[in-house]
Design a protein around this nucleic acid. Structure first.
Length: 852
RNA sequence: GCGAAGGUGGCGGAAUUGGUAGACGCACUGGAUUUAGGUUCCAGCGCGGAAACGCUUGUGGGUUCGAGUCCCACCCUUCGCACCA
């Protein structure tokens, strides 16, 4: 065996071996348990980033581990290839998005291969290929015919200068990113998927997902947002016409405290009142300024204006004013609320600001009144007061009584309300899956016939920032109505890329099928047993995928409800950020790889400067890797310098998968050092002659190795891979202490290589063969601890006096609790000093606490 | 603003789930090897203290023989908020 560890050689050799053998090809095999291990597919942005390396390494560790446990493991890879960045790159470089995308895919695929992931590349797919998106269109058309897809108007960000729709990301501080013009809201027709039809099921089924993090399930639950309440009608009159303003509330018990109603700026009442009120019209217009992001809307200063209209309180008959308020959202409930200032924080603030009456109607924990300032207790549930016949009723009884009275005069009923909204999938963009609809003057919106799918996206256009180039392309636009055959226009909107990613995991089972969206093979592989991806997808992508599974199930395509049995959400990758103030006052961000830090004798950082010119730089904290802060670390440079195994080991070792991972050059060095040590140990082992060993040392080493292995297997099961990497280091430390090629060393090294092989497969592959353990470590059985090696004659007990650590004592494993306690007392005699022992607590195998 | 998660040495993290806080590694210090730098190897390393010992898991309180872990209040950080993927 060669003395020096040369990762490039070792990795090329291992990858060639796997390639020759087709080691990662997987076929359906009913004889073995299947395991579908999937990492979220990447957007082909140009090159891999650290988040990808982390994500795919985690997936690969699982894949290789389960393979060694004898399972039939599928780990595929593909490309989430449609999207906005390709259009931006196209504009910048005057290259069609398709070419940019395909080039990126080719490069990133090479990078993925160099990392040695056990991926079945035969199943590769890209969502921008017609053979993939055809099935988006096919399913959309079916859902459209069924009414699960439909057209209505939706609100978008509008750039008035470029005359184009902007994504939220393209809105910066309320202005268009290219033009700097203040963004406006605009209503346009678009297509929606009726995800709300599945709201009840999507919510209820969360309870049946024990393999998902509680945190994610809770976020989904809150997002779906089921609330039970009462829909209440407030009658009003317009030009002698009696109409009803409907609101939804979960606090119908506070109805007698409603002193006004508030509607969203987009509400029809606001539009009506604006016609005769210029000032109000101006205010409504003002509310339409700005972007559609809810986070921004929620932080706006609460503003409102009276419409001049009044409505009738459905129970008291009182006239109460109707206001327009910017904190009422048109997209939720009825777009109108009844305001109960005494018991709702936002209504309270609003009433104080505009001098509206505040009428307490609930006895809360602080009393019967609601003096300033607002206290959270005002929103407590309590019994009704100042509410006439409802006085004294607790929450539920009050709601029941009020709902019953309202339904008597048809002005209210109990209702279940969802926060979840239907999914708007139309994008006014070129680089996406065309929505397969034809607009016919006679027949209206008609879905394209199955035989005419796919509606192919031309791949040679270059967008120029002024909207969708498909609109200027008669060859695409002009067609005939699928229903009547008359000339008609094609829809030019494309689908949200979340549609592409909502079912790709099922397509990996059968990417070559040109007759069906999915087939029998998908029934074999689905559901995904382990899904791995960023926590940032905890809501939207996962919810949309869960919805798609059900929509596909109801089309008879699959038999599963839930796409992902187990979910692992990995944390973000962070790095230090440094900047330098330039003479112009702008901050220049300096990549951490160019920064040298000075430390004091205790290792604290005391200075930082740029290596190239010695300029002092300032530290700006540890942040997620991003272009804007120039703190990204290129995995490619890392792989070239240290090899894929070092990169893989570092991302596993540095942090548990669900935590954030902090980049550190020194940490990478440390990981590399470990692999060099492993190699050196292997080389020495190879050169040594077999030795008989020494009983006591061998026994101690076996105890150590097998205890560490037992813990490592426990950690693997809970996906805590960083301590599995630690375990490998501990085993190597133990083996290095042994000296000589003894049977215990032989066994320990065999365990070490198998345990480590999912993390650093190349070096383990090489050592496994070179040291004669076998041909292919991937084919070896997963190591299990030997119970005999774990047996101990004596156990060390910790002895506490009054809960304070005072000593330790070795106790025979067969000792009774009584005897153990007695031994413990003799060990800490001087701390007891004759005081009477009041209590002795013995934790078997662990500690004794003596209370005096 | 709403929803979710998290705060442990100089740093990343560990702690068999209520039982020795700081495993493993990084950084740092000393030593050996080397002409030197790097590499490699050996030793030390939570804080205070000469030591005995005391203190220590964001802050303050509580439960317990025993709390990083459970309960209450507060402070701080990160993620998501429907057109980034």
């Amino acid at each position: 065996m060669q003395e020096r560890y040369d990762p490039q050689d070792v990795e090329r050799e291992a990858q060639d071996y796997w390639e020759r053998r087709g080691s990662f090809r997987v076929v359906e095999d009913p004889a073995r348990p299947k395991f579908y291990c999937l990492s979220m597919f990447p957007y082909p942005s140009g090159k891999l980033h650290m988040g990808h390396v982390r994500n795919y390494t985690i997936g690969d560790v699982l894949t290789r581990h389960y393979r060694m446990r004898g399972m039939n493991v599928l780990q595929p890879m593909g490309w989430d290839a449609f999207g906005l960045p390709a259009e931006n790159a196209a504009m910048a470089n005057k290259v069609p998005p398709a070419k940019w995308t395909y080039d990126n895919i080719a490069y990133m695929k090479k990078q993925l291969r160099s990392l040695g992931f056990a991926l079945d590349w035969e199943r590769e797919l890209a969502t921008c290929r017609p053979e993939y998106y055809k099935w988006n269109q096919w399913l959309f058309a079916r859902l459209f015919r069924k009414g699960l897809a439909y057209r209505k108007s939706g609100v978008v960000n509008w750039d008035p200068v470029d005359q184009t729709v902007l994504a939220n990301e393209q809105v910066i501080d309320g202005r268009g990113w290219r033009t700097g013009a203040p963004v406006e809201k605009r209503e346009i027709p678009m297509y929606f998927l009726r995800i709300t039809a599945y709201a009840e099921e999507l919510l209820a089924a969360l309870d049946g997902l024990p393999g998902w993090p509680e945190q994610v399930k809770l976020m989904q639950k809150n997002w779906i947002g089921r609330s039970e309440g009462v829909r209440i009608g407030f009658e009003y009159e317009i030009e002698g016409d009696r109409r009803v303003l409907w609101v939804f509330t979960t606090r119908a018990d506070t109805l007698m405290g409603a002193t006004f109603c508030a509607v969203a700026a987009e509400h029809p009442i606001a539009a009506f009142a604006s016609r005769s009120n210029q000032e109000l019209a101006k205010f409504v217009e003002e509310c339409k300024q700005g972007a559609v992001m809810e986070a921004d809307l929620a932080q706006l200063e609460k503003k409102g204006m009276a419409t001049g209209l009044t409505c009738t309180h459905p129970l008291s008959g009182e006239k109460i004013p109707v206001w327009v308020a910017n904190y009422v959202l048109m997209g939720y409930g009825e777009g109108a609320v009844m305001a109960v200032p005494a018991h709702d924080e936002r209504d309270y603030a609003f009433a104080l600001e505009y001098g509206l009456p505040i009428k307490p109607v609930i006895r809360h924990s602080l009393g019967d009144t609601v003096p300033e300032p607002w206290q959270p207790q005002y929103a407590d549930y309590g019994t009704c007061i100042n509410s006439g016949k409802y006085d004294g009723l607790p929450y539920e009884k009050a709601v029941d009584a009020i709902a019953a009275d309202l339904s008597g005069n048809k002005l209210g009923e109990k209702q279940v309300q969802w926060r979840l909204r239907d999914w708007g999938i139309s994008r006014q963009r070129y680089w996406g899956c065309p929505i397969p609809i034809v607009h016919c003057p006679a027949c209206g919106d008609v879905p394209v016939n199955d035989d005419d799918l796919p509606v192919a996206l031309p791949e040679d256009l270059v967008p120029d920032g002024t909207g969708n180039p498909l609109n200027k392309m008669p060859a695409f636009l002009d067609t005939r109505c699928p229903s009547c055959g008359q000339p008609a226009k094609r829809e030019t909107d494309t689908m949200d890329t979340f549609v592409d990613s909502s079912w790709y995991f099922a397509r990996f089972a059968c990417p070559d099928n040109d007759r069906a969206m999915v087939d029998q093979r998908a029934r074999y592989w689905m559901p995904v047993d382990q899904y791995i991806g960023g926590i940032e997808h905890a809501i939207l992508h996962l919810l949309y995928s869960r919805f798609f599974m059900r929509a596909m199930r109801d089309e008879g395509l699959l038999e599963v409800d839930e796409p992902f049995t187990n979910l692992l959400t990995q944390g973000m990758v962070l790095a230090e950020t440094y900047y330098r103030d330039t003479p112009t006052g702008r901050r220049e961000w300096v990549n951490p790889s160019e920064v040298e830090v000075g430390r004091d004798a205790k290792g604290k950082i005391v200075s930082a400067k740029r290596a190239s010119d010695g300029a002092e730089v300032s530290f700006a904290g540890i942040r997620t890797m991003s272009k804007s802060k120039n703190n990204g670390v290129d995995p490619q440079a890392l792989i070239e310098k240290y090899g894929a195994d070092t990169a893989r080991f570092f991302v596993i070792f540095a942090s548990p998968p669900t935590n954030t991972l902090e980049w550190s050059d020194e940490g990478v060095e440390g990981s590399h050092r470990f692999l060099k040590r492993l190699w050196a140990f292997g080389a020495k082992f190879d050169a040594a002659a077999p030795a008989p060993g020494e009983a006591a040392a061998d026994r101690a080493a076996r105890l150590e190795v097998h205890s560490v292995l037992r813990q490592a297997n426990y950690d693997l099961a809970k996906h805590q891979f960083n301590t599995v990497a630690s375990a490998a280091m501990k085993i190597l430390n133990a083996l290095e202490r042994l000296r000589g090629r003894t049977p215990a060393a032989q066994e320990g090294l065999s365990i070490l290589l198998r345990l480590l092989s999912p993390i650093t497969p190349h070096v383990c592959h090489h050592l496994w063969c070179a040291l004669g353990f076998g041909e292919d470590v991937m084919q070896a059985a997963w190591p299990e601890p030997d119970p005999a090696a774990l047996v101990q004659d004596e156990i060390e007990y910790v002895v506490q006096v009054n809960g304070k650590l005072r000593g330790t004592v070795w106790v025979p494993a067969s000792s009774t609790e009584e005897r153990t306690a007695a031994l413990a007392i003799t060990a800490v005699e001087k701390f007891i000093a004759g005081k009477p022992v009041r209590k002795r607590i013995v934790v078997p195998g662990r500690l004794v606490n003596i209370v005096v």
